[in-house]
Design a binder for these strands. Structure first.
Lengths: 218, 218
DNA sequence: TCATTCTGTGAGCAGATGCTTACACTACGA
DNA sequence: TCGTAGTGTAAGCATCTGCTCACAGAATGA
C-alpha cells in the first residue's frame, strides 16, 4: 500500500523524456510465480521465508520485492495462480470429452488425481492467515469462484431449472467441495488407502450429485 | 526426545533420598493447556510464539518449557485437548436425549453450533505443519478417532449390519467430516450467510446419512 | 529448624526473518 | 556513443523467535 506496484512504472515510463530498456517485470513475475507458488504450497506461509523464495527462484530477495510490494502480495498472487492453474487443468480435461456429464467427468478426474499437484496446500496455508484482511479476501474470492465453477456443473448435471433447483445445486456444490477437501486431507495424512479414497470421492460424489432421487446404485 | 518429559521427575522423586514439595506440574499443565490451545487456535502454529503463549498464561516462557519439552509438544497437547473437549461437548449433547438418532442429533447440533468455540482452527494450523512427523502423526490419530466416532453414529443411524454396510458407513463418515470442514471454512471466510450454512449442513448431512437407498424424499 | 526440591523472575543468546540500501553493470533509445 | 533506466549482487538492519541460564524465594518432609 505504501509503494506503488512496480508494474506501473512500465506504463509511466512512456511519458518520461528519455527511456531505455522497457521493463520486463511482468514477464519476470510470470516466470517466478509458479516457483513462488510451489514454495508456499510446500512450506506454508510462515516457513516460506523470503530468503527461501529467493533461493528457489535463483534470484536475490531484492528482486522479489521489485515484483511484489511485500511477502503477503507474493502469497496472494500465488493463491490466484494456483486457482487459475486448476481451472485450466479442468478445462483441458473437459475439452477432451468423454462419457457422462461434465460434473461426473470432473468427479472421476478428481477421484484419480486429487492433490496431484500439491497446490491445495497453499489453501491450508491461507486458512492460517485469515486474520490478514487481504489474504482473507483473496481466499474468500477464490472459494466463491471455485464454488460457482462447481455449482454450474452441478446445475448442468442435474438438468433442473428453477429457483429451488438452483439453491439445491448451491448446497450440493459446497458439499462436493467439502468432499474434495476431506479427501485431500485424507491423502495428506495417509488416513485411507488410495482405493478407499477413490471410492469415497466417487461414491459420495455421485450420491451428492444424483441425490436421494438417484437410481440407488451400490 | 533429548530431554525426559518433566512429568517423569514426579515419579522419580519418590526414589530420591530426601524430598520436598511434591511437584504440581500435572496440575499446572491442566491449568494452562486450555489457554495454550486457545492461543494456537487463534494464531496458528507459527504466530503463536512462545512469548505470546507465556504472556497469555501469565507466566514466563521458562515455565512452559518445564511443562513441555518444546513448542511442538505444546501444540500436540493442545491438539489432543481440543479433540477431547469436542467429544465431551458432543457427549453432553447426546446425553440430554431428544428425537431422532444420535447421528441426526449431532448433525442438528453442529448445524447450529459449528465453529462455535473456534477450536477447529488448530486443525488448520496442524495441517500446515504436516512436514513434522510428530504433528502429522498426532493429526492423523485425531482424525482417525474423529472418523470412528462419526462412523459409529452413522452405523447406528442406518441400522444396517454386514460388511457392505460398514464400508458404506465408512465413506459416509468421511463425507460428513468433509461437510463439517467446508461449513467451518464457509463460516471462517463469511462465504454463506448463517441460514444458508445451516441449510447446507442439515440438508446435505441428511442426504449423506440417509443415502441413495433411502426413501427418495425431495 | 534445616536441607532439599519446586516455583517464579528476568535477562540473554544465537540464529532467523522481512525488508532495505548502496552500488556496479547492462541494455536500449536517441 | 552517450545517458537513462532496468537488472543483478551483496551486505546490512532492526526485530523477532525458540529456547536456556542463573538465581532468589517458597513450600515441604525430616
Amino acid at each position: 500500500m505504501s509503494r506503488p506496484l512496480p508494474v506501473l512504472s512500465s506504463s509511466l515510463s512512456h511519458t518520461r523524456t528519455r527511456m531505455a530498456r522497457p521493463n520486463q517485470l511482468h514477464e519476470k513475475r510470470s516466470e517466478l510465480l509458479p516457483i513462488v507458488a510451489k514454495a508456499f504450497a510446500e512450506l506454508g506461509y510462515r516457513r516460506a521465508t523470503t530468503a527461501e523464495l529467493a533461493e528457489r527462484c535463483g534470484v536475490q530477495q531484492n528482486i522479489l520485492y521489485r515484483l511484489w510490494p511485500d511477502k503477503r502480495a507474493m502469497f496472494i498472487a500465488a493463491l490466484g495462480y494456483v486457482f487459475d492453474l486448476a481451472v485450466e487443468i479442468w478445462s483441458r480435461v473437459l475439452a477432451k470429452g468423454g462419457p457422462g456429464t461434465t460434473a461426473a467427468r470432473l468427479l472421476a478426474y478428481e477421484s484419480e488425481n486429487i492433490g496431484k499437484f500439491g497446490n491445495h496446500r497453499i489453501i491450508f496455508a491461507g486458512l492460517n492467515e485469515t486474520d490478514d484482511p487481504e489474504i482473507r479476501a483473496a481466499l474468500a474470492g477464490m472459494y466463491s469462484r471455485y464454488h460457482r465453477f462447481v455449482r454450474d456443473h452441478v446445475v448442468d448435471h442435474r438438468g433442473k431449472r428453477g429457483k429451488a433447483a438452483a439453491e439445491e445445486a448451491d448446497l450440493i456444490a459446497w458439499a462436493i467441495i467439502g468432499l474434495g477437501t476431506v479427501t485431500t486431507i485424507s491423502k495428506e495424512l495417509g488416513l485411507q488407502d488410495p482405493s478407499a479414497r477413490r471410492m469415497t470421492m466417487h461414491s459420495m460424489g455421485s450420491l451428492l450429485l444424483d441425490g436421494s432421487a438417484g437410481t440407488g446404485r451400490t
